[in-house]
Write a protein that binds this DNA or RNA. Structure first.
Lengths: 213, 213, 213, 213
DNA sequence: AATGAATGAGAATTCATTCAT
DNA sequence: AATGAATGAATTCTCATTCAT
């Protein structure tokens, strides 16, 4: 197995900034060209960091990807923690709206996030990084849906959560891509469909639950 | 510009089978490892064909991908042509059910299809191949939705079509992936959510249309 | 050692024409791109002959080159035979003029001839082909100069002959090349210097011989 | 397999020495086998340098050739600069003698120089490299002849310069080749004819000029 | 610790030649 | 005999990773 954890935690201020610069450069490049197509030297150059220093902090290319994914994880955990607190107090429409908005904002900031979350598995390496992230997010989203759909079994809840996440990330990814290709307007129009999509899906589920309960 | 068309149309029967074997091998490998990670020699080996023969039919690796995408195109066109004929005569639920079923069957047979359709753009090369395919499918799906949602402008119809496709392909891709990782059951459970998802989304849209009309 | 002789002498009229077509195509290609850069398939295509047929007549690429060189040999032998007959009866100026004119006409028709005669030795293969031809032509030119410079030893005569040939072929090659690049005019101006060059060189030699004799 | 050799030899030659070693190896190989026939791996091996290091300094094979040609350029410019300073002060015989001697010495040291200068155009790549060099040398030689033949038009001077260069390089190339094949003696005998050849040619031109002037 | 030149296994592609049809 | 698809060794070039300085 390949070492994927960071080799050392940078202590000096400069070192921390360096790692961030590397991750920023890597994230942008991965998002634009894909993991395999990006060279470690290109990342180093874009980050204005010598290649030797990159390997001071990351044992290999895969570890860079893992660190990028870890940054996603942090941001997403914050989002889902907050959503979970709101879950009990809000109606379904407001909750889903908040969910979608938060993920859209996050995905718009973090280029490359949707690509990882779509789990395309461009390579075994990327698939592994994506999987770990996906498991965790799925658990959070499942908990969230448990509030809306308490009558479903945990497994059924997880299935709904996965479907929502897949759809949401796909729509977000599509929107971001079209923004670049077909213009801002189309992108926004797509993004605005994310809420109706999830609300319709979950509302129908809730209605079915109520009918049968 | 890179040559992406096939170099020679196989005349002999054996040659046709050979090309099919190459495409089958390439499709499987692309689906499992991603375009960039797959070597042309690996494709040749998996197809039990010498590497020279691969290059007899395809000028380069990209052309293999294009041919794989072209096979998707054929299959999808057949599906959407049929759906379009049924569109006017069927209720929305039946139409969407047919749509989802057809794409699920197709995607289950054609490994790698969802990866391409998620348009992750793993590399500029793959992005190009995916884009052409996406444009065409989008046009067909837009026409399909035009029957269900005639009051919407063409652009609004296209946006709904894109959203449906993105969600459908994402759910399908997720299901296929989970089948391999988490077992058949989870995969099927996910796939069964595709219909409710699209039906709920489009039904809400139809209801809105009727309310305002 | 590689087989370089022709595999079979074509008997049927069609076969003879085929061989000629192959040699014409090969000669042109060799002259334009160089021996190594030309593919046997390109020769076959240019000659409108299937590649399999090319190998029916020539065991390998080298043999095609050898056959092209052999055609040069034939043409040159005819020239030198005629010159030798005239040698005794003509003044030096007329003889050299005839020599130069004949070679210029030949070289203008037979593209690629000068390249071979410059013996650049682009590859061991080509060097071998060139060497054989060079030996023979040198012998003839030496005999020719023997008439003009009878007091010199055979070796000294051969040295003069080689110098004349090298200079003549170089000037001719340069002229032909410049015709294509810099225009006809420059090419002709260069070619016209071939006679003065050889006449001056040989006249000085004759004068020296007379002075010492 | 057990590693038996010592750690990598710590001999880190300076980058400059490394590049020189590569160029030396390339020059020799090009001269012996021709540009197309030489592989980059063979160059690397001959230079005792890993292939990766070759591509550290040269983006591709063509660039190696260009660098070899650039070395020729430097050496030749030095020669022609010096000759030009002497031109006005020396009689024609001394000038030509110096010219020939300098080029002969240079060509004897720099294997492959004559092959490039004969501009055989073995390949489009080599032709391009040769052309640039030829243009520059022609300009210098033209300036040199301008001193000897001031009554001629610049174009006429250039024609003479080109003829002299073509003849000189051809004779030199022949001599160097024969040294290897037929022995030193013949090579030297050929080289000694270079001076008489050019002196006779240019003297006749000067005489003609004086006669008409 | 920091640097970036050095390394070489591995990837895509070519092409002379063969041989089944 | 004629054909042209098939073959695979050989070639150019890349890039993740190391390590001497």
């Amino acid at each position: 197995m390949v070492e994927t954890s960071m080799r050392r935690t940078p202590q000096r201020l400069g070192a921390k900034q360096r790692v961030e610069a590397i991750l920023d450069a890597a994230e942008t490049r991965f998002a634009e060209q894909g993991y395999e197509s990006v060279t470690t030297n290109a990342i180093a150059a874009a980050a204005h960091v010598p290649i030797g220093s990159v390997y001071q902090y990351f044992p290999n290319k895969e570890a860079i990807l893992a660190a990028v994914a870890a940054r996603y994880r942090e941001g997403l955990l914050a989002i889902y923690d907050r959503l979970h607190q709101e879950a009990a107090q809000q109606p379904i429409v407001a909750l889903v709206a908040d969910w979608v908005d938060s993920v859209v904002v996050f995905g718009s900031r973090r280029m490359g996030f949707t690509r990882i979350m779509l789990g395309a598995g461009e390579s075994p390496t990327l698939a592994a990084a994506a999987n770990a992230l996906e498991q965790e997010i799925t658990a959070h989203a499942t908990a969230l849906l448990g509030v809306l759909l308490p009558h479903l079994s945990p497994l059924e809840q997880e299935v709904r959560a996965r479907v929502c996440l897949a759809a949401l990330h796909a729509v977000l990814g599509l929107a971001l891509r079209l923004k670049g290709e077909a213009g801002e307007a189309v992108g926004w129009a797509i993004i605005e469909q994310a809420k109706p999509l999830l609300i319709a899906y979950l509302s129908a589920e809730v209605a079915r639950q109520n009918a049968s309960g």
